[in-house]
Write a protein that binds this DNA or RNA. Structure first.
Length: 518
RNA sequence: GAGUCGUUAGCUCAGUCGGUAGAGCAACGCCCUUUUAAGGCGUGGGUCCAGGGUUCGAGUCCCUGACGACUCACCA
C-alpha cells in the first residue's frame, strides 16, 4: 500500500530507534510462552502472587511467581509515565501494565522502547499477575521484549463490553488480506478454526473405522469421475498436456481393485467454473469407498459421520434446528417428484412424455436432451427445497449416473442416492459399477453425449477399465463436499467465510500479455 | 454470462442544486504513574477507482473500462 507511506516511514524510524536502544524486534528468535493467555485467566489466582500491605507482592513471591507471555499489541492506553496495553495471542488477551519507574529500574531502556511500540507489534512480556483497582486481571510488566514491528495500521478497531468496532467491513479486502481478518475479527477466526476441527473429526471418523487415507494424482491425462470442465495445463518434461482432477473417484476405485477394501481421501479438486456463494473453482472433496458394502451401508455411514462430527466438534448433534442424532428420512426419487409436482412415474418413461410433463408444470424444456436430465431437473425444482431435514433421495436415472450400478429391479435407474439437508445436496453415493463391460458401455454412452455437445460428459478411461477387468469387488462409495459440510455445520452463509483464500480476481489488472478469450 | 448497486483520508463513512473536500477513529506533538471505545489541548493527512466527454467550472452529469457486493443462470 503506497498510500500510507508516511505511516510506514514513521514506523520504520521507530524500528531503527528500537535497534539503537538494543531492542531489535527482528533479531529475536524465540520467546518462552509456557502458558496460553486463556490459561493465565483460568489459573489466575494460583499464578498470581499475594499482594502485601503496600499492594505489591513481596520480592520472594515475585521471584517464584513470574510468568511470561507473548502476543500482539491490540490496544494501547498511555498515561504519561504509565500505560495499559492489551496483548492478544489470537485466542485470548490480557491487559499489561507498564510503569516507567519499574521498567527503568529493572530493564534499562525498556520504557523508551515501550514508547516506540505501536498497536500491531508483537511483544514478549514477563511480570507477575495482579488485579487493577477495577478488578481486571492484568500482568505487571517487569521485562519487555519487542518481537516484531508492524509497519501498517491494523484494522483492529476497538472493543467495549465485548462488542467490536471492526475496521475492515469491505468483504473484498477481508478476503484479500485474510491475515488482517484473522487478527481483527473473532468470528472469522472461529469459523475457520471450526473448519479445521471438522476436517480433523472426519479424518478420525474414518481412521477409527479402519479406512486407509490415501492420496491420488491431481495431474491427470483425462479428468474423470464427475461432470465438470477441467483446468488444463502442460507438463514440460513429457511435453504433454494434462488436466487437474475434478474428482477423486476413479483412482480410489483402482485402489479397491488392488484389494485395499476401505479407503478415503480428503483432497482438493478443481472445476473450471464460476464463483458464487456456494462455488469456488477449487474445493475440498471427501470420498470414501468400502468393498462388499451396499447403499444401505453407505447411508448409515453418512448418518454416523454427521452425528459423530457434530458431536465431536460442537458437543451436540442438534444444530440449526436439526438433529443429526436421528436417522435420516429416505425417499424414492420418483415418488418424491410425484408427490411434489404431480408428475407420475409413468410420465417419466421416455424423453418425449417427460418433456411434455415438464412443459405442463411450467418449466423450460429447450435444453433437455435426455430423460435423466429432465428427471433431475424436476427433483431440483420441486423436491429439493422441501428437503430441510436430513433426507436421502434414492434411485437416480442412468443417464446422469455413468459410474453407478444399474438397479436390477428398475430399468433406467441406478443404485444411487444423494443426501439433502436444508434444501441442499450434501452427499452423493452409489453402488459402484464393477462389471467392466457395463462400465465400458456407460463410457461409450457418455461419448455419445459428448458428441452431441455436452462437454461435461464423462471421457473414456481405458486404464480404469483395465483395472475393472482385473476384478473389483462390489463396492459402495460416497462423496461429500467438505466446504459445504462445513457451511452446513457452522451455519456459514457464504462459502468464502469458510475458505481461507477464496478465488478472487487480482485487485490490480495484470500484465496484458494474455488476451481474454470467449 | 445477464441485471441492480457500489468504489471519497490508514479504517468506517458524510458530501444538498455542478462552484477545487468533511467527521469519527487511527497517525503525529504536548499534558497525564490503575486505564480499558482512557481523557485534555494542538497538528498533519486526499490521483474523490481509471480513462474519455459535457461545462467557464465535475467527487457530483454522460460514456467506456477495472474491481467488488447482491440476485439470476450452471455446477458440489
Amino acid at each position: 500500500m503506497s498510500d500510507d507511506l508516511t505511516i510506514r516511514d514513521l514506523r520504520l524510524e521507530k524500528l531503527a530507534k528500537l535497534r539503537e536502544l538494543g531492542f531489535d524486534p527482528f533479531a529475536v528468535e524465540r520467546f518462552d510462552t509456557p502458558t496460553s493467555i486463556a490459561d493465565l485467566h483460568k489459573r489466575f489466582d494460583d499464578l498470581a502472587p499475594a499482594p502485601g500491605d503496600d499492594g505489591h507482592p513481596s520480592p520472594e513471591d515475585i521471584a517464584t511467581k513470574t510468568i511470561s507471555l507473548a502476543g500482539r499489541l491490540v490496544s494501547l492506553r498511555e498515561m504519561g509515565k504509565a500505560a495499559f496495553a492489551n496483548v492478544s495471542d489470537g485466542d485470548d488477551k490480557i491487559q499489561a501494565y507498564f510503569r516507567k519507574n519499574d521498567l527503568d529500574e529493572l530493564q534499562p531502556g525498556a520504557w523508551a522502547a515501550f514508547k516506540l511500540l505501536d498497536i500491531g507489534d508483537h511483544v514478549g512480556i514477563t511480570g507477575y499477575l495482579f488485579r487493577t483497582k477495577t478488578g481486571e486481571q492484568s500482568i505487571y510488566v517487569r521485562s519487555l521484549t519487542p518481537l516484531s514491528k508492524s509497519l501498517h495500521t491494523l484494522p483492529l478497531g476497538k472493543e467495549k463490553d465485548g462488542e467490536q468496532w471492526y475496521g475492515l467491513s469491505d468483504v473484498d479486502q477481508r478476503y484479500r488480506h485474510r491475515n488482517l481478518d484473522l487478527v481483527a475479527k473473532k468470528d472469522a477466526r472461529s469459523m475457520l478454526l471450526n473448519r479445521s476441527r471438522i476436517v480433523s473429526a472426519v479424518r478420525r471418523f474414518f481412521d477409527d473405522r479402519g479406512y486407509f487415507e490415501v492420496e491420488t494424482p491431481m495431474l491427470q491425462l483425462e479428468a474423470g469421475g464427475a461432470a465438470a470442465r477441467p483446468f488444463k495445463t502442460h507438463y514440460n518434461a513429457y511435453d504433454m498436456d494434462v488436466k487437474l482432477r475434478i474428482s477423486l473417484e476413479l483412482y480410489l476405485k483402482r485402489i479397491i481393485c488392488g484389494d485395499v477394501p476401505k479407503v478415503y481421501e480428503i483432497g482438493r479438486v478443481f472445476r473450471n467454473e464460476g464463483v458464487s456463494n456456494r462455488h469456488n473453482p477449487e474445493f475440498t472433496l471427501l470420498e470414501w469407498y468400502e468393498a462388499y458394502a451396499n447403499l444401505e451401508d453407505m447411508m448409515s455411514c453418512v448418518e454416523d459421520l454427521f452425528k459423530d462430527v457434530a458431536q465431536k466438534v460442537f458437543g451436540t448433534t442438534e444444530l440449526h434446528g436439526l438433529d443429526f442424532g436421528k436417522p435420516w428420512h429416505r425417499v424414492d426419487m420418483l415418488t418424491a417428484i410425484h408427490e411434489r409436482s404431480g408428475i407420475a412415474p409413468e410420465e417419466l418413461r421416455d424423453l418425449e412424455s417427460a418433456k411434455a410433463a415438464m412443459k405442463r408444470v411450467g418449466l423450460p424444456t429447450e435444453k433437455e436432451n435426455n430423460l435423466g436430465g429432465v428427471i433431475e431437473k424436476l427433483l431440483e425444482h420441486f423436491v429439493e427445497p422441501h428437503l430441510q431435514e436430513p433426507t436421502f433421495v434414492i434411485g437416480y436415472p442412468i443417464e446422469t449416473s455413468p459410474l453407478a450400478k444399474k438397479d436390477p429391479n428398475r430399468p433406467g435407474f441406478t443404485r444411487r442416492f444423494e443426501g439433502y439437508v436444508l434444501g441442499r445436496e450434501v452427499c452423493n453415493a452409489f453402488s459402484e459399477i464393477n462389471d467392466p463391460i457395463d462400465q465400458r458401455e456407460r463410457f461409450e454412452q457418455q461419448l455419445g453425449e459428448r458428441a452431441k455437445g455436452d462437454d461435461e460428459a464423462h471421457p473414456m478411461d481405458e486404464d480404469f477399465l483395465f483395472a475393472l477387468e482385473n476384478g473389483m469387488p462390489p463396492t459402495g462409495g460416497c462423496g461429500i463436499g467438505i466446504d459445504r459440510l462445513v457451511m452446513l455445520l457452522t451455519g456459514a452463509e457464504h462459502l468464502r467465510e469458510i475458505l481461507l483464500f477464496p478465488m478472487m480476481r487480482p485487485d490490480k489488472p495484470q500484465g496484458d500479455d494474455d488476451e481474454d478469450e470467449d
